[in-house]
Design a protein around this nucleic acid. Structure first.
Lengths: 126, 126
DNA sequence: ACGGCTGTTCGATCTGCATCGAACATCTTA
DNA sequence: TAAGATGTTCGATGCAGATCGAACAGCCGT
């Protein structure tokens, strides 16, 4: 049977959205990759997407890092389901804590994330 | 006579708040010093405060840098008046472009800016 | 049991940026 | 005109964090 609650992999630590500082929220959302992730997640149903199913221009190490940051910013919730880790955007909780902020991110058009935009020849990229 | 419009010092370049990217806004506000500056500015009347009159934990070089960042994020407007450079928070413009964002910053309590908070012994500080 | 998939963690690297001190420019006041 | 005040710019420094590759750890098929 597909184990519904595997306690083997240390289950992810979630921040209480009510306790998240404004700085944590802004710092988390100041990254283009994370905003893109959020937007993609918002377009799906809760618990529909596993971490690996996101279209991001970074390797899985960085990806895992980004998920951790978003988690501790109270922006998303994760639940293990077998080998996969499913995600849910904590929209109502986050909206209650920081009204309007998430809306701004979701309103941003894809490809408008900005930071230089250019691939940057010598830059760490991918 | 107190020169009303000195064109000697290259007058500051202002970004059109309507053209500011979300990234620029978030990146600008992701800094505790800048948020504090914004809050202090919001508490005063327009054009009432010169750059040097803000209570910030940084030297004037960094201070000047922060003002430049906020300017190009469409958050404030500057006008030269003699040797002083007066400031005004672009509240209506910024609110129109990013509804709710500025309110979040202004709602943040002083001393709650966060990032580590500790003076950091070896850290570049002041 | 084995091999493939999914994610996390570790150590290293590299870049951006916040900061400083010092030099400079401009305006004001003595 | 000389001195002081206000800001900006420059070059250097240091740290935080974004990224990678590789190693590791559960889970799931065959």
């Amino acid at each position: 049977m597909p184990s519904a609650s595997p306690r083997h992999r240390s289950s992810p630590e979630h921040a209480d959205p009510g306790d998240v500082t404004l700085h944590a929220a802004l710092a988390a959302l100041a990254d283009p990759v994370r905003r893109r992730l959020i937007r993609e997640l918002a377009a799906a149903e809760d618990w529909a997407r596993a971490c690996g199913t996101f279209d991001l221009p970074v390797g899985k190490a960085a990806r895992s890092h980004h998920f951790a940051v978003l988690r501790s910013a109270g922006l998303l919730e994760q639940r293990d389901s077998g080998a996969k880790r499913l995600n849910r955007l904590r929209r109502p909780e986050f909206d209650a804590r920081f009204p309007g902020l998430l809306d701004l991110v979701l309103a941003e058009k894809d490809g408008e994330e900005d930071p230089g935009a250019e691939p940057a020849p010598g830059g760490r990229d991918r």
